[in-house]
């Protein structure tokens, strides 16, 4: 099976600070569903950040979507990010843009026509049950609704990989369920690789998954 992510002896740290992840070796198959767990400050989010190039490997090698992340150029990183969907705990929606335009962002960046983009956005807003909120702005929505918008945005450009950093951390039960259903749907129907950083794996998850746990800077695969 093709590997979407390959890490060999990967070490991560913030500039001159102590090493957060030390010599991690793991791989993630295309189309798989992966959870990364660990205590607060264990380095889960740092590992996820390295997967979309927000921090650079300090040692070892990391390959994401066939792109080597060590000393990656800006143009290569932009190219890779156009094929990744990211969901953040704090949503990261553009406050001055409408919900519709926020979901459209990856399509605008990838150069899709307005007609194609609008059709795709309407479809996704339907999936997250926010079609009636399309013209509103993020601050007008609840946290759960904003995260559903962020989820729709992550799916908009049919990415090969979705990275989610504690996507349901601050959400109510209903919104959490919508988010997990969407992630499962993307994985089963579109064969999108999903990597979720979380404190707890939800019991309601209905897809086979891989589980990595981070402890003392080491990444372990849990059978």
């Amino acid at each position: 099976m093709d590997k979407v992510i390959t890490a060999e002896n990967l070490s991560l740290s913030y500039k001159d600070f102590e090493t957060i992840i030390s010599k991690a070796t793991f791989s993630i198959d295309a189309g798989s569903f992966v959870f990364i767990t660990g205590a607060s400050g264990s380095g889960k989010s740092t590992l996820l950040k390295s997967l979309y190039g927000a921090i650079e490997p300090q040692g070892g090698q990391l390959i994401v979507g066939g792109v080597k992340m060590n000393k990656i150029s800006t143009s290569k990183l932009n190219f890779l990010r156009r094929h990744i969907g990211i969901v953040f705990q704090d949503y990261k929606l553009i406050k001055e843009w409408t919900i519709e335009k926020n979901v459209m962002l990856p399509l605008i960046i990838s150069g899709y026509t307005k007609d194609v983009s609008s059709e795709q956005v309407q479809k996704l807003l339907g999936h997250v049950k926010l079609i009636h909120q399309a013209g509103k702005y993020p601050p007008e929505l609840s946290g759960g609704e904003q995260q559903r918008v962020a989820m729709a945005r992550a799916l908009a450009h049919n990415p090969i990989l979705i990275l989610a950093d504690e996507p349901t951390g601050n959400l109510d039960e209903y919104s959490s369920e919508v988010i997990w259903n969407l992630l499962e749907g993307a994985n089963t129907q579109l064969k999108t690789t999903i990597v979720v950083v979380t404190h707890h794996i939800p019991s309601s998850i209905n897809v086979p998954y891989k589980h990595f746990h981070i402890e003392m800077g080491t990444v372990h695969e849990i059978a």
């Binding site: 990183l77 932009n78 190219f79 990010r81 990211i86 553009i94 843009w97 962002l105 960046i109 990838s110």
Partner: peptide
């Protein structure tokens, strides 16, 4: 800055 950094996370080139 916030808008520009969010756009960067989705691979927007500098000019965009």
């Amino acid at each position: 800055a916030e808008r520009m950094s969010i756009m960067a996370l989705f691979g927007a080139p500098v000019w965009l």
